[in-house]
Structures are given as structure tokens and as C-alpha cells.
Design a protein around this nucleic acid. Structure first.
Lengths: 195, 195
DNA sequence: ACTATATGAGAACGAACGTTCTCCGGCAAG
DNA sequence: CTTGCCGGAGAACGTTCGTTCTCATATAGT
């Protein structure tokens, strides 16, 4: 019952290797043999820990979601003021888009490729996007606005992600930020006039 | 040099059949044999007309682009006033999202699946998205605003497409329209105050 | 009628892939 | 040292798929 590395460490190591290849090349363009090589484990171990490629995909999406929220939290927490915290979301997008291996949203890419045949992928994508909207709703509420502003900002962020991916430029983050500032101004300005 | 059906008709017939399957199921989940069956042609004819699956993919994207612009034109032309023409874009999105086989943007789905291995797909997606932004820029200019508003509306539209696909609801079109109205108001209101 | 070309139906081929199996070496227990 | 189990390396298997080939048939030209 004792190993050189714990099963959790191995799982993480495999998900790291597989995830990077899944994201950069598309899931169906990565074979289990390549994952075995990149992770430095045997096929037997790989299948003992994950059972099937579909489980690996599910794990990859779970890890992506985790990292997404961690990165977002870090940027938002660093901003001062509830107004700025809302806009910090878009600053975080800018830094994400500037990463040299940026290739859009893992969930959207996965949805396009596998959504029609793998229900778990659709569920994971839906849950992830819903969680993002929920976070924006919380931020908007704390800033004194409501659901509607949050949904609008979510649409801007979503659009910026795919536009940045396809155009290959990080600029959409800045444009989205500017549009977001206008919407925040319109929403909070109106609210503060009322109070 | 005479056939029952012209080569152009056959090409269209094949692209229709292939395109529907590509879009609904993902490209790598559709085999050439299935396309042959659905289009009712022989493999030989299929390969004479297209040469390879990659050419079929390129043709599919070209046809998707054509239909996209035709549908958009129809909706925008039906709107009265340059202000309403800008917002008509989002009404058109709403009717698109309500189609029962709606599954997001063919270009984005294709990009996620094949972008890393097929440069033609990336080029087609980039060109398509750029063309959409150009159209919005034209509409925004005619409405008396500039590039910036057009980029912002493009981000909203883009975000609405993927959000509608993944959430499975057409509602993002309405939300995007509302946000767009706010942005248009802010941009044109400011402009008209200046004049 | 005869030849030559073209076509359709589908078999065949070669590669890739997910998954399982074989074989062998190492190691712990007795 | 022997025995029995566990794990690694990778061969093997069965399937799928893009593409090409075979062969029988139909048709056009002379």
C-alpha cells in the first residue's frame, strides 16, 4: 500500500501532461500512448488510475475549472474596491490571453469537439460557465448592482475569450474592459443616482 | 461532359449533407462513408469533386460563411433606421439560437477541434470573424458611431453565441441585445450631444 | 457489334487509436 | 534460495477511418 509517489501525485502528473496536450492540440489528436510517454507512467498504471480516456477528459476539465477559478480569485482579490474588482476580471483575461500557449477556453473547445457524443463534457462546460456567471453575479451584487449587469459582463468576457483565441491577439480583453466599464457606469451610475 | 446533375449541384448536395453532420456531431465524428451515404453519391465521385476530407471541411466553412452573411443581411435589411439595424443583429441571433439544431458557431467548434492541426481552419475562422466585425463596423459607422462600438457589439454577439450553445438556451441573445442597447445609447448619445 | 472509357458499389489497404494481454524482471515472505 | 505476486515495457487486438483499387456494368463513338 506504499508507493514511490502517492496516487494523488501521479494523478496530478498525468492530468498535467494530458491536459496540456489536450488543450494545445485537441483531445482526439492526442493518443493514450503519448500521454503515457509525457507523464512517464506505464499504460497499466494510467488505466488503473483513470479507467478510460473519457475519465481523463473529465479530470482534465475538472482541473481546468479549478485553475480558472484560482487565477480569477487571485486577480480579483488584488483589486481594491468593488467597482475595480468587477473590472479586474478583464485585466485577468488580458494576462491569460497573453500567455503564449493560449488557445481559447478549454470547455468551449471540448464542447465543439466532443459535445455531441460525450454528455459529461456538456455537463462540465455548462457547470463551468454557470459558475463563472455566479461569481460575476456575486461581484456585481457586492458592487451594488444586480444579475443583469453580471450577465452582460459575462457575455463580454465570453466573447473576448473566443475572439482573442481566433484572432490571435490579446486586444479583445482591453476592448471588453472598456465596454464593461461603460456598462458598469450605466448600471451603478443609475443606481447611485437613485440612492 | 453531360451529367444527370451538374457538378455544382452535386457539390452543393454533398456539402449540405456533410455540413449538417459536421455541425451537429463534430467533424472527426463523421466518416467519409457516412457522407457518401447521406449525399447519395459514390465514394469515387465524392473524391473526384473534393479530393480530400480537408477540402470538404473548407467547403463546409465557406458555405457556412455564405449562409451566415445571407441570414444576417436579411434581418438587418428588414430593420428600419440605422439605430435599429445595429440592434437587429441581436434579434437575428435570437432566431438563430432558437433553431432546434443550433449548436454554436461552426467556426468556433471547428477551431477547437482542428485548429491546432489544420491551418486552413484557423484562416477561415479568422476571416469569418473579421468579416463579421467589418459588417458591424459598417453598421456602426452608418449609425454615426465608430469602430469601438462595433468591436464592443461584436464581443457581445460572440459571447452570446457560445453562451447560448453551452447553456442550451436562446436567452443570451436577449441579454446581449439589452447590453448592446446600453452601449449604443452611450456611444450615440455622447456623439449626438457633441453635434 | 466492338472497343474504349467512365461509373457505381463496395472491398481492400494502411494507419491510428483505445484498450487489453503477454512476458519478464524485481522483490517481499517464508 | 524459492515461490508468488506486482509492475513496467510494449506487443497485440479489434475497430475505425481516410483513401485507393477492383471489377462488373453501362454507355458513346465508329
Amino acid at each position: 500500500m506504499s508507493h514511490d509517489e502517492s496516487e494523488d501525485e501521479l494523478r496530478r502528473q498525468i492530468l498535467d501532461a494530458a491536459g496540456e496536450m489536450f488543450y494545445s492540440r485537441g483531445i482526439q489528436n492526442v493518443g493514450m500512448d503519448e500521454i503515457r510517454d509525457a507523464a512517464g507512467v506505464s499504460l497499466k498504471r494510467l488505466y488503473r488510475l483513470f479507467g478510460s480516456k473519457d475519465e481523463l477528459i473529465a479530470g482534465h476539465l475538472a482541473l481546468s475549472d479549478e485553475r480558472f477559478h484560482a487565477g480569477l480569485t487571485k486577480h480579483v482579490d488584488a483589486a481594491d474596491g468593488q467597482h475595480d474588482k468587477l473590472l479586474a476580471v478583464f485585466d485577468w483575461l488580458a494576462s491569460w490571453f497573453a500567455e503564449d500557449d493560449f488557445r481559447g477556453c478549454a470547455f468551449i473547445n471540448c464542447y465543439g469537439e466532443l459535445g455531441a457524443t460525450n454528455a459529461a463534457v456538456v455537463d462540465a462546460a455548462r457547470a463551468h460557465k454557470q459558475a463563472v456567471r455566479d461569481r460575476l453575479t456575486r461581484l456585481a451584487t457586492e458592487a451594488g448592482s444586480g444579475d443583469e449587469l453580471a450577465e452582460h459582463l459575462a457575455l463580454l468576457a465570453e466573447g473576448a475569450i473566443t475572439t482573442a483565441a481566433i484572432s490571435g491577439s490579446p486586444q479583445p480583453a482591453r476592448q471588453a474592459r472598456k465596454a464593461a466599464a461603460t456598462l458598469v457606469q450605466a448600471a451603478l451610475g443609475a443606481a447611485s443616482h437613485r440612492t
